[in-house]
Structure formats: structure tokens, C-alpha cells
């Protein structure tokens, strides 16, 4: 296809389009007219200090919350929309797992909601468990999991149905550096397979691994671009310095 960059048709390249999105809890404006676009097949990072509104934005994208102003489209559809929900994999900031059930049972349950079943389900569980390095612990009740293991299981749940879009809210919190590296390698592989990934983080070296980044502070996008652009524009050597320069670091 030969499409002009900025025409309306270009939206078929866009996975998430947020236009002037605002969200307010009581009197507190948590998101203030945020506009950004996540292109298909990229890893897009949301970077920002605690309380800057990352989770709030992500929940708007997945349709779990409705913006007070502006609009959000995901895969060309205004959210929330059921058939779009089946094409995304969501990992919430806090693990939403059934503690009494084993990891395998958790995976089975969530996957059947997406229509997986039978042998392909069993095979997929093995594959995904391998990816997040939980193959040996599948039969354990999740109550007995460590924090990092739960995190990885949540990621596995999000990956099970091979979604086109992954929305991950701080996926690597509590995961040790070695596993974290392997998780990011996996995200990289998925991206190469055409999956779009929207990920929130406050870890700077993870921000470096994103294709593009939006820096959030007090509900506003204070910077947006590739890590290299952001560093160059702020004359910083590291993401950390760039973040501080943009006013994100010091409260």
C-alpha cells in the first residue's frame, strides 16, 4: 500500500489513538487533554513518576474506564468494544489471579474466556509457561507463588490467546534482572512478530528499549519521541537525565 503519512487512512497503521483525553477523579484532574498515537508493531512506553496517571490512561485504552473528555480508539474502534477486547492482552498493575487455583488452572480459565480449548490450549499453556519460565511450577497453587512468579503468570495470562495488542502495566516489577531481561527479549520477539505493545514503567533502562516513549507528569505528556530523540533534545546522555531535564524527576 502506498499511503500518505498524515491522511485519515493512515489510521490503519495506528493501533491506539488518543485525542485530547481527560479523566478526572473528583476535583483532581488525573489526565489533562492527552493526545498520543501508538503505531502498529511498535513498543510504546509510558514513562512517569508514581501517580502521574499511567495506569489511568492504560485503563482507558482497555475500555475499563471511560474518559471524561476526548476519545480513544483501539484498532480503529472506539473503546470499549467487545470484539476488540478479544484481540488485546491486558496485564494489570496488580496481579489479578485466583490464589486457590494452580497456575495451570488460572491459565486454562482465562484462556477459555478467549475461546481456547482442547489440545491447542494444553500446547499453548506449555509454550507460554516456557516463555515466562514457569513450566516447573504450573501445578502449584498461586497462593504459594512469589511476587515475581505471580507477575510472570499475569504476563502469561495476557499472552495466552496470542493477541495483536499487548497492554502491560509495569510488567517487570518485582522480577529479578535476569528474568527481566528475558521478558524484554520476549517482548522484542513478539514485536517482530507484529504485535503492538503498550507498556508502562518507571525503570529507565526499560524505557531505552522502547521504540517510542511518552513521558507523563501530572497528567500531561511532557515529552514524546524515540529514546534517542528525547535524549538528544534534552542534551542528556541517559534517559534518567532526560527525564529530569523534562521535569519528571524532581517532585
Amino acid at each position: 500500500m502506498n499511503l500518505p503519512e498524515h491522511s485519515s487512512v493512515a489510521s490503519s497503521y495506528d493501533c491506539v489513538v488518543a485525542v485530547d483525553v481527560s479523566r478526572q477523579f473528583g476535583k483532581k484532574k488525573v489526565l489533562d487533554e492527552i493526545s498520543l498515537t501508538v503505531k502498529r508493531g511498535e513498543i510504546f512506553g509510558l514513562l512517569g513518576p508514581s501517580g502521574s496517571g499511567k495506569t489511568t490512561l492504560v485503563r482507558l485504552v482497555t475500555g475499563l474506564d471511560i474518559p471524561d473528555g476526548g476519545s480513544i480508539t483501539l484498532l480503529g474502534e472506539p473503546m470499549p468494544k467487545l470484539n476488540v477486547l478479544s484481540r488485546i492482552g491486558y496485564m494489570a498493575q496488580s496481579d489479578a489471579l485466583y490464589g486457590e487455583l494452580t497456575a495451570q488452572e488460572n491459565l486454562e480459565f482465562f484462556s477459555t474466556l478467549y475461546g481456547l480449548r482442547g489440545n491447542s490450549l494444553k500446547k499453548r499453556i506449555q509454550e507460554v509457561a516456557e516463555l515466562v519460565k514457569l513450566s516447573d511450577d504450573l501445578k502449584k497453587p498461586v497462593q504459594q507463588y512469589s511476587g515475581g512468579m505471580k507477575r510472570r503468570l499475569s504476563l502469561a495470562v495476557a499472552l495466552m490467546h496470542e493477541p495483536e495488542v499487548l497492554v502491560l502495566d509495569e510488567p517487570t516489577v518485582g522480577i529479578d534482572p535476569v528474568l527481566r531481561k528475558s521478558v524484554w527479549n520476549e517482548l522484542d520477539n513478539l514485536r517482530r512478530g507484529g504485535v503492538t505493545i503498550l507498556v508502562t514503567t518507571h525503570v529507565m533502562d526499560e524505557a531505552d528499549k522502547c521504540d517510542r516513549l511518552a513521558m507523563l507528569r501530572d497528567g500531561k505528556v511532557i515529552a514524546l519521541g524515540t529514546p534517542e530523540q528525547l535524549k538528544a533534545d534534552s542534551h542528556s546522555a541517559t534517559m534518567e537525565d532526560a527525564f529530569i531535564t523534562y521535569g519528571g524527576g524532581v517532585a
Binding site: T62, G63, L64, L82, N83, L85, S86, I88, Y90, A92, S94, D95, A96, L97, Y98, G99, F110, L113, Y114, V157
Partner: peptide
């Protein structure tokens, strides 16, 4: 309260 309801509603479950 455990967030699993939210998680369920992030799936195509009606």
C-alpha cells in the same frame, strides 16, 4: 477487591 473482576471485564466476557 482482588482485581479479578476487572481482569474478567478486560476479556470479551459480557
Amino acid at each position: 477487591t482482588t482485581g479479578t473482576l476487572q481482569r474478567l471485564l478486560a476479556t470479551p466476557l459480557r
